[in-house]
Simulated assay, not measured.
Amino acid sequence: MGISQLISQTVGFPTVRLRRLRMTEQFRKMVAETQLSVNDLIYPLFVCPGQNVKREVRSMPGVYQQSIDNLIHDCEQIYKLGIPAVILFGIPEHKDEYGSEAYDENGIIQRAVRALKKEIPELVVITDVCLCEYTSHGHCGIVKEVAPGKYEIANDETVELLAKEALSHAEAGADMVAPSDMMDGRVAAIRKILDENGFQNIPIMAYSAKYASGFYGPFREAAESAPKFGDRKSHQMDPANSDEAIREVALDILEGADIVMVKPALAYLDVIYRVKQEFKVPVAAYQVSGEYSMIKAAALNGWIDEQRIMLETLTAIKRAGADLILTYFAKDVARILT
């Protein structure tokens, strides 16, 4: 007989009153099982060319495309709020079918990283490693025509470019790289090229269980990365599958991932839980653009209490097992928690 069964058979109401420890704010804080901390937060940022640029993303109130000068000002505030890390997404000056600005040493991310590490060296700068923002077709890799009118993303050729991109980010001063493409074998290729070039201590945060989700719409506006044709179901995961997520995570860990990520978060709390229970490694979860925008839209219409729902959803993500949360609410949360 388990302890819970034993207790339930021998002790009950009125001796047991679970409300006793809910009666005051102090009691509730003392016995809270899940603690959301500013140290859990990673703030996503979109950096673009130009000077003094700060364009609000129409579908993401409070989120901006920013030039490097404004990015630095924003990150100074972020650091003062105690948020330990940011993750950068780049909007290049020019796009081509190979996404060549993604791995250009003078690309927008590479310049942004150098500027941030010069001005705010203590801030952890993570870089997204993918090609979708940089390709003219908007896909995450090299697109090949395999039959008349039929196209496929070439996995192995794409992995070579992703490894080059990750190395260029490390050379610029990135503290961590985060491959989000979902190509097979890319973590191993990135680990190999980093190690061969003296970056053995740069961690990899792999988007290991990234689903082909409908929640990414606003992000594609922010990053200007919507595919011009087709979709991403050939490489991102089927929302119906969770066993497959365990296989993906296991492979990324074997290939050298230091942190594994589940994306999106709220519709995949069960996957976050399974990953944490199965592997006991640092787990990140991305509260993605659609999750953010739905809360914002409902709050702007007066339908919900934004702050309450924001904290409730982030606590749920943490309770499911996430150690780190990428969220556009990071600054708002930090102001509350600090």
Results as ranks from 00 to 15, higher is better:
238 D>N: 13
238 D>S: 06
238 D>C: 00
238 D>I: 00
238 D>R: 03
239 P>K: 01
239 P>D: 01
239 P>L: 03
239 P>V: 00
240 A>G: 02
240 A>R: 03
240 A>T: 02
241 N>E: 05
241 N>P: 08
242 S>F: 12
242 S>K: 10
242 S>G: 08
242 S>T: 11
243 D>P: 09
243 D>E: 10
243 D>L: 06
243 D>I: 03
243 D>T: 05
243 D>F: 05
244 E>K: 02
244 E>Q: 04
244 E>A: 09
244 E>D: 03
244 E>L: 03
245 A>W: 00
246 I>K: 05
247 R>W: 06
247 R>Q: 04
247 R>L: 02
247 R>E: 06
247 R>A: 03
248 E>C: 14
248 E>D: 14
248 E>T: 10
249 V>H: 05
249 V>Y: 08
250 A>G: 10
250 A>S: 14
250 A>F: 10
250 A>I: 01
251 L>P: 12
251 L>M: 15
252 D>T: 01
252 D>K: 03
252 D>A: 01
253 I>K: 09
253 I>Q: 09
255 E>V: 04
255 E>G: 11
256 G>P: 06
256 G>R: 01
256 G>L: 00
256 G>C: 02
256 G>M: 03
257 A>H: 06
257 A>W: 03
257 A>I: 00
258 D>C: 06
258 D>Y: 10
259 I>P: 14
259 I>E: 05
259 I>L: 10
260 V>P: 05
260 V>M: 00
261 M>T: 13
261 M>I: 10
261 M>D: 09
261 M>P: 15
261 M>H: 15
261 M>R: 10
262 V>L: 12
262 V>C: 15
262 V>M: 11
262 V>A: 12
263 K>N: 09
263 K>P: 11
263 K>F: 07
263 K>V: 04
264 P>T: 01
265 A>E: 03
266 L>D: 12
266 L>M: 15
266 L>C: 13
266 L>E: 12
266 L>P: 14
267 A>H: 14
267 A>Q: 12
267 A>M: 13
267 A>R: 11
267 A>G: 14
268 Y>S: 02
268 Y>T: 03
268 Y>R: 05
268 Y>E: 03
268 Y>D: 02
269 L>R: 07
269 L>T: 07
269 L>H: 08
269 L>C: 09
269 L>D: 10
270 D>S: 06
271 V>W: 05
272 I>A: 11
272 I>Y: 14
272 I>H: 13
273 Y>W: 03
273 Y>N: 07
273 Y>A: 05
274 R>V: 02
274 R>M: 15
274 R>W: 10
275 V>E: 09
275 V>S: 05
275 V>A: 08
276 K>N: 13
276 K>Q: 15
277 Q>L: 12
277 Q>M: 15
278 E>W: 13
278 E>H: 14
278 E>P: 15
279 F>D: 10
279 F>Y: 13
279 F>R: 06
279 F>M: 09
279 F>P: 12
280 K>L: 12
280 K>C: 13
280 K>D: 12
280 K>M: 13
280 K>G: 15
280 K>Y: 15
281 V>R: 06
281 V>F: 02
281 V>L: 03
281 V>D: 01
281 V>Y: 04
